[in-house]
Amino acid sequence: MSGIAEFSYRLPMRAGGARPGSHPGASFGSGQQFAMHGRLFDHPDPRRLDLRASLRAARDEWLVRVHLQRVAVQVVVIADVSASMQFGTRRTKLHVAADFVEALGYSAFRVGDRLGMLAFDAAERDDLFMPARTGRGTGHLLATMLRDCASRAAGRGAIEGLRRCATRLAGRQALVFIVSDFHWPLEQLPSVLDMLVHACVVPMVVWDGAEISPPRHAPLLAVNDAESGEQRMVWLRERMRERWREGVAHRRGELADVFGARGIRPFYVEGGFDPEAMSRYFLEMTA
């Protein structure tokens, strides 16, 4: 397992739960962060007895120090396995996503969190579902499932598959990674994000270099829409190259607007997963 990438992550808010872990919690327990003084009768732990606070108390009663404990959280990956994720020049975007999932599995195991996975294309992929579990090899198992999965018929209904996956997590507190290239209409994405309002959502935008930069020397380019199967020839004049770059910038702006309206910042993966960049992302989120 030493060859697997690892990164650090923390939730930007306190998490509920009673299972000990590494994230700031909202429940009382055997933690290190002082929360308040309580009556010994309500919190019967003489080891945390505070004599000075008891002598200063208005009432004649023993007081103990009550602390907030650190807790484990549930981590869920919602992976896009539609036809466009099978595109890639050196490695497919789905394989890059699998690299991230493998690193996430090892990182979650190291801090004691449970990891699960949901997947979608035009519909929810029940064959790729994995309930949240703790284990050293969980990340490797999920990554293998993604690398070996076969895409189904192309279509433009990926948002419906994502909606069905989000419905499973509605109202739950968890760390949710949405791993996709987001090459589908975004009009219904806000309603999906609203179902995950109780979760910490991290959109992972996986793009290949050939998608975001036009070829430098190819005047005539054959393009194929992986989702619809449509094929066409494009004459790459300089104006077309400019429109290509403008389209990528416009898409970035659309994603920033949709996620930014809910206080979410997307994380871009272009070409390969960088665990150090992922650690910086969470460090900036929790700063």
Rank of each mutant, 00 (worst) to 15 (best):
R245A: 04
D99G: 07
F129K: 09
R239L: 11
D225Q: 04
G263S: 12
I4S: 07
M13E: 08
S228D: 01
R110Q: 15
R59Q: 10
L162V: 06
Q173G: 04
A256F: 07
G157Q: 15
E61C: 04
G112M: 03
D42R: 15
L115E: 08
L40F: 12
M278A: 03
F34A: 08
P215H: 01
S30D: 15
S27P: 00
H250C: 08
R265A: 13
R19Y: 01
A119R: 10
Q86S: 10
S27L: 00
G139N: 00
S8C: 06
E276R: 14
D208R: 00
G135T: 08
G31T: 01
H250D: 15
V101D: 09
I4C: 05
A287M: 09
G272R: 15
M233L: 14
P266E: 11
V258T: 05
A153L: 13
L220T: 13
P275A: 03
S180N: 09
F273W: 11
F100M: 14
L193I: 08
D181T: 12
P215Q: 04
H67N: 15
S8D: 15
A97W: 02
D121G: 07
R56P: 00
A150W: 00
W235M: 10
L94E: 01
T138D: 03
H95D: 15
Y281I: 07
D121F: 08
S151V: 14
A132E: 11
I4L: 13
E227N: 07
F28M: 04
S191C: 00
V64W: 00
S22F: 01
A256Q: 15
M117Y: 11
Q173C: 02
P44Y: 11
G3W: 11
V66C: 07
P24S: 02
A174K: 04
P12Y: 09
R245V: 14
V101T: 10
A132M: 04
V201R: 07
R239D: 15
R48H: 05
R56I: 00
F273P: 06
E284L: 12
A57G: 00
L146S: 00
D121S: 13
A249W: 12
R10E: 09
P190T: 06
V96L: 03
F177C: 05
M13W: 09
L189T: 06
G272L: 04
V234A: 10
R237F: 00
F28H: 10
E227Y: 07
T92N: 04
S2C: 01
